[in-house]
Design a protein around this nucleic acid. Structure first.
Lengths: 212, 212
DNA sequence: ACCTGAACACCGTTCAAGT
DNA sequence: ACCTGAACACCGTTCAAGT
């Protein structure tokens, strides 16, 4: 009786027990972020992710070599988002001093809106600088957005003609410090608006500090 | 036969198996720091500390409520050291702009010389701000050193008359950012001297940024 | 290919018991 | 008081086995 042949592939007949996710890798990354958001980086467990996704504990080793690799992927994604969001505030047709301040606010805003990403990116969970090439590339990309913006402002005469790398490291250190202290609650700010206001103040101090 | 009574207390006859340390609390703190230095905060295990000290796994619960309490104690000690070292560079008889730059270098220098302490203090291992009173007090003390220095420079006319708390948060964010990026190796500096040189550059940018 | 279940070697913490 | 040894409930990772 050949009439029993189904139109769909046979495996669709067991939807609840096999191939739970079309994109398990994506689901693992998102569940990891939610878990970090709820319990902190230290509270992230692969077993917990598996349980939440209804997947065996070993399933995720098909998508990531180990827990460290999963965190690396989270960090790389974060650097990519950070680069896109900061670069958008300083487009080619608006490379102004005001736009540079917006970039600082966007940087800290990213950390506030994506604290889990930011903590993985800079929390020291990743083994010191033995990162994957993808992660190194994304990190360098974020930094280059800042360097390019400073070079542009230098050519306009708004920023002193110091080594752009030194200038960029100074600016980066400052906004990174604000971001870290803010998401750790050590800035003693009452709400997001207060952090943003302080970030604007910081941007103004940076502007004065690097002015030509 | 009463002649067998020893001069020393009886327990000294079993030196290798009991009361190993005159100050086990101190030994636990130092071993924790060494372990963090070797393996990172994530690599710190209470079992490892016990094994290294030749002490049972439960022994340290006589001195610390749990692992978190031990880390709190490490952080509190770090804040105390940081306060002492930074305050020493800005004494009552030398409250100058130059001394303020030295304070920034001392701050980053502390992080470079005591990265394990610094990582526990700011690495996010401690649950957000539900710290012990001792820790909160030490942290506030470190911050007050900075506020007082800025008030002194304001009264001398060297620093703009903004809210000292905002000024202090700006300066703190910057040196904290430098310290964190430096000990995480993300500043791309070749050695300690290069970090110190960059910190001096940063101190100069801060000075320009907050000048009256 | 992708997933499972059981196993291994860890971990923090607790607790009755020893001195 | 201070410490021990065993136990409990976790954890990351591996691997033979299933489909």
């Amino acid at each position: 009786m050949p009439r029993s042949r189904p139109l769909a592939p046979a495996r669709t007949r067991k939807p609840a027990s096999r191939y739970h996710h079309g994109d398990l890798r994506r689901a693992l990354l998102e569940e990891a972020l939610q878990m970090i958001h709820r319990e902190g980086v230290a509270g992230l467990t692969l077993r917990g992710i598996g349980a939440r996704l209804g997947v065996s504990r070993a399933a995720l080793y098909r998508h990531f070599a180990d827990k460290h690799a999963l965190l690396m992927a989270v960090a790389a994604e974060g650097f990519r988002m950070l680069r896109v969001e900061t670069a958008a505030t300083f487009p080619a047709d608006r490379q102004t001093v005001s736009a540079f301040a917006d970039m600082a606010v966007a940087y800290v805003g990213f950390a506030l809106r994506h604290p889990s990403h930011y903590r993985v990116m800079f929390g020291g969970s990743l083994d010191d600088a033995q990162a994957t090439p993808e992660l190194a590339e994304e990190g360098a990309g974020s930094f280059n957005v800042l360097v390019n913006a400073l070079v542009a402002l230098q050519s306009q005469g708004h920023v002193r003609k110091d080594n752009p790398l030194d200038l960029a490291r100074f600016v980066w250190s400052t906004v990174h410090g604000v971001a870290m202290l803010a998401i750790d609650g050590q800035l003693m700010c009452k709400g997001v608006e207060e952090v943003v206001a302080f970030t604007r103040y910081t941007a103004e101090r940076i502007r004065t500090g690097i002015a030509a």
